[in-house]
Simulated scan of single mutants.
Amino acid sequence: MLSRAFTKPSSHKQSPRNDEQQSHRSVSIHEYEDCIFGFMDIDVPLIVCDGHDRDAGGEAAYLTLREVLRASVGMIGEGLLGMTEKVVLDRGRVCAVKRFRKLSVRRGEFGRSIQRLALASRRCQYLVPVRAYMYAKRMKFVVSDYYPMGSLADLLDGARKHGHTALGWNQRLTIILNISLAIAFIHSQSPGQDKRLPMNVHGNIKPSNVLINVDFTACLSDYGLAQLAERLEVSDTSWQLKPPPRPPQPAPCATALSQENDIYNFGVIMLDLLGGIKSMKRCSKEERVEIRRGKFDLLEAPMEGKGREEAMKVFEVALACTDPSPEARPSIDRLLFDLGNVCY
């Protein structure tokens, strides 16, 4: 997977019938300063983010490009920013590598931004921190922790495909609370001097960026990466390598970087956790009244009594978050207050 970025087709012309037998050659230009090299001949170390060189017994300090390229075992996700692969290293450590299709910043700006994001995310237990990164001519990627339970999108879509319910209500509510705390931390950060790269905006909140721990707590990944990369449409052939597209949903406001759009995207996740496409369609004032009366089967996870009351409160919060007017959406502080009232 990752190593393909360092090979290119031979210049000899091939007939269409011989495409599958087309030869490849490795890039062998050695130029460490510009990070252009043949990975079979030189082992270039990744740049470790500040504060991570002592983690995991010092393993992060010795992570090299050759090791990462050879250790890729398959793609686990793909989006508008790039693709994510699972990497199993020689020492048994498992990581996730997110490779960008196209960055909107240069090398120095990329490195400084990743270092700032890594330092900030280490202070919040609900954010997935970046461990290391590489900026090469033909490849730019970041390395982070791997979550064997996968993403929220994986859990929900996999269960719905087979007609099952993947998560109970308490687990769903825990995930909602964890995400809200991650967003609160991000929105409390100083925006920074560069208005193009605000540190107080996530920029790409969606179910596939909510990673699940074995205890069903959640962490938010890709903090700040949308500010560094250009969004490119995924080709149709990419669906051959990953699960079918998700059911239609309200389009997240992911194109503009703002806290209001972070809140909107969080609202979409809450609606997805409540009942998927059913809850997303039931949003008019008249239908809200019918939902409160129990006329519509809105909720995906079976619940009665206190659980149902909590779910209805979360539904009202989610509707406020997805208000068409950005100015009308609640702040994250207001959301924390409202969600606190749900639980207590």
Rank of each mutant, 00 (worst) to 15 (best):
A218I: 07
L257T: 02
L211S: 01
E233W: 03
T217H: 12
P244N: 08
M270L: 15
A229E: 01
I205D: 04
W239M: 15
S279Q: 03
T237N: 13
N204C: 13
M199A: 11
N261Y: 05
I205F: 00
S208P: 00
G276E: 02
L232V: 12
I263R: 01
A256D: 11
M199T: 08
T237W: 15
S235A: 13
R246M: 13
R246W: 07
N261K: 01
N261G: 01
P245G: 06
R246K: 14
Q249K: 11
V268Y: 05
Y223H: 07
D236K: 08
M280S: 07
E233D: 10
D236N: 11
I212W: 02
P245H: 09
I263C: 09
S208H: 04
G203S: 06
A256T: 13
G203I: 09
I277V: 14
N261T: 14
L241F: 11
P247D: 01
Q249D: 12
M270N: 05
P198D: 08
P243S: 06
S235F: 08
K206T: 03
S221N: 11
Q240C: 05
L228G: 04
L232R: 11
I205P: 02
S235G: 13
R231C: 14
T255C: 09
Y223P: 05
N200C: 10
Y223V: 05
F216R: 07
A229Q: 00
I277M: 09
Y223S: 04
W239Y: 14
E230F: 07
T217G: 08
V210R: 00
Q227I: 01
F266K: 10
G267M: 03
V210G: 05
D262F: 05
P247F: 02
G275R: 03
G203Y: 08
V268D: 06
L274K: 07
Q249M: 10
V201S: 04
I205V: 15
H202C: 13
T217C: 06
K278Q: 13
I263M: 09
N265K: 10
G276L: 03
V201L: 09
S235M: 13
E260Q: 11
G224K: 02
G224Y: 01
N200A: 10
T237S: 15
N209W: 05
I205H: 06
N200M: 07
G276T: 02
S279W: 00
S235R: 10
V214L: 11
I205Q: 06
Q240N: 15
D215Y: 00
S208L: 08
P250F: 01
L273S: 01
Q249P: 00
S208C: 09
L225A: 10
F216G: 03
N213H: 06
G275N: 03
C219S: 15
K206L: 04
N213A: 09
F266S: 07
D222R: 00
L271E: 01
I212N: 00
L273W: 02
